[in-house]
Each structure stands twice: as structure tokens, then as C-alpha cells.
Amino acid sequence: MSENVARRGFLFGGGAVLLTAGCTSNEPAAAPTTGAPQPAPAASGNDQPGTKVVIGFSAPAADHGWIAAIAKNAEATAKQYSDIEFRPVEPTNDINQQISAVESLIAAKVNVLVVLPNDGQQLNQVALQATEAGIPVVNLDRIFPDKLAYRTWVGGDNYGMGVSAGHYIGKQLQDKGVSNPVIVEIQGVATLPLTQDRTKGFADALKTYGFSVTAKQDAAFTVETGNEVATSLLQAHSKIDALWNHDDDQGVGVLAAIKEAGRNEFIMVGGAGSANAMREIEAGTSVLKATVTYSPTMASSAIKLARLIAQGKGMSDLVENQVPQSITLASETITAENVANYRALGFES
């Protein structure tokens, strides 16, 4: 168990989940118990059993609620199909170990790979090796810089997350007649392109209301740092009108700091769409009023796409004969009014 997971469980009563590698059965399975939803079976002819395919899967270690849900969603979707043999490798946060794991899948001659790299740049070469070996790669979330390294990319819209958060906050403040608001932003890791995209989207959306961010600081996607950063920002600003926190996992720490400080004069928006964030929103007893999605259900879609690619099929709702080269999921805004529609998709932080 990682320190982050242990700390999260200690502070907030959450349970830790241990993931195991190895081939999975294709028999029907019970829904996952970690907040990762059992994807609904699709109704198209593409879901009829076809050519048997072996799907290799590699992702980082599940020391973060979102990553744990990625692995669970991938496995749950693979189990829906009798023609899929799901072959995950041991999850790891070590770049070299992930490269070795992917190389082992290439050597095993799997039919298709689904890879969420720890770092797209550093795993680009091994993805190219797979492609050159005739194994198509479905690149999940963190993108490989070389388009020759993957057949299809599927992931969330980081810029769109910022836009969604910015519009929600902008409209709320505008409707309240707030002028010159104090808007605080708690990022994930400031140096990552995905964080920079989220920040830009937020700034661009706020600008349409004549607003801008007063202060921002990154919190490294952890509960502990989220708590520390939020505490610091709360101390620095005696009055805040709105806060956007990029990540619901670190948001557990952010909310704890807000409650500890007894602050409730502002509205908060989260990021990613965790189950615990949805419960806070639904209860209506805290400053958290919305969260913008970056759903780990993208892993379910990646498995479905990998199966179609390996079987030489396209997407039944599209005219084209082949699966698209990239698919970007929309970032949706979850509020008390629509949370019931998203509850089943939440993941536990």
C-alpha cells in the first residue's frame, strides 16, 4: 500500500484496493466494488462474439482513486466479451518497469495493446516497437508524442475541464452580482501539459465574464498536499468568492482543510467526478457545489476500441469502416440537479 492511499484511508475512512495482474476469466462477473462502474453492455452487432483477441494492458500503479478506477473499468469491460482474453501486466510507477512490462506483451505477441503510460514521452519508443511489430496500440489518456506510436488515442478534455469549471463559476458569480471576485485555483502538477491546459481553459472561460484568477498553486494530486495548499491559500485570503480544485482525489484534503478552517463564504468546483465529490454535492452541506468530469470510464471505451481494431471492425454508429484515430471525451458539469445521472460513474477517492 502506498503512503498516499494509506493516508487517505486514515484521514477519511476510505478503503485501499489491491490490484493483481494476470489473465482474467471471461465469465460474467459481479460489478467492481471500488467505485468503478460496470459498463452497460452495448446493443450493436459489433458486440456479437467474433474473432478471439488478446488485449495487453499496462497502466500506472493504483495509488490514486482515478487510476484504480481506470484498471477496474478496463478489466470489467473485458469480462463482458467472450472473445477477449485480457492480459494485464503488473501496474507500476517506475518508467523502466513499465517499459519492460510492455516489452513482455510485445514478445507474447498480443493482438492489441492498451497503454496508459506513466509518461508518454518516455514510453514513446516502446509503443513504436509495438507498432513496428504489427501490434496496434490504443493510447489511453497521457499521449505519446509520436503519432506513429499509436493507432488510436482516447482520453479526456483537459482544456474543456477548465472551460466547464470557469463557466460554472463565472455564471454563479455573475448571477450573484459579484464584482472583482477573489477566485482561487488549486492545480495538480503545474509543470504537466494537462495541468497547463486545464488552467488555460479556466482562464479563458472566466475572461468571458470579465473575471480572472486571483491566486493559484499546485497540489501534486495528493490528499496531503491538497490539504497543505488549501490551508495556505485560506490563510492568505480572508475572503474568497470561488475556488476550483483540479482533482477530486486531492480535493479530499482540500475539503478537509476548508472544514477545519470553518470557511463557507465561497463556492467550490472539483475535477474528475469522484463518488465522494458527488456525495458532497448531493448532500449540499459543504462549499463543493459542482465537479467537472474527466471520467475513468475512458478505460472501458479503450478496451472496446481495442477489440474492434483487432477484429478489423469500425464503430457501428459511424459511417467510416475503421475506428477513428483519436477520441476526446467531453467534460461535463455535475451539480446537485443532475448528480443522479452520474452517480454510477463515480470512483472512490
Score class of each variant (00 low, 15 high):
Thr195Leu: 06
Gln250Asn: 11
Pro181Arg: 05
Val184Ala: 00
Leu233Ala: 01
Ser212Leu: 07
Thr195Gln: 11
Ser238Pro: 09
Leu206Lys: 02
Val184Ser: 02
Asp247Asn: 13
Asp249Arg: 08
Val213Arg: 02
Gly226Gln: 04
Val184Asp: 00
Thr195His: 07
Asp248Phe: 01
Thr208Pro: 10
Thr191Tyr: 06
Asn227Ala: 12
Val223Trp: 05
Thr199Asp: 10
Gln187Ala: 12
Asp248Cys: 06
Glu224Trp: 05
Val223Lys: 05
Val213Gly: 03
Leu194Gly: 10
Gly210Trp: 06
Thr195Asp: 15
Asp249Glu: 14
Val189Gly: 05
Leu234Arg: 06
Asp248Lys: 01
Gln187Phe: 03
Thr191Gln: 12
Gln196Ser: 10
Gly226Lys: 01
Asp197Cys: 02
Leu192Asp: 14
Thr231Ala: 15
Leu206Val: 09
Gln187Gly: 07
Ala205Tyr: 03
Gly201Val: 00
Val184Met: 03
Gln217Ala: 01
Ala190Trp: 05
Asp204Ala: 10
Ala215Ile: 01
Gln196Trp: 06
Asp218Ser: 09
Val189Thr: 14
Pro181Ala: 08
Asn245Pro: 04
Ser212Phe: 05
Val189Ser: 11
Glu228Thr: 15
Gln196Ala: 06
Lys239Arg: 13
Ile240Ala: 03
Leu192Tyr: 09
Glu185Lys: 04
Ser238Lys: 15
Asp248Ser: 06
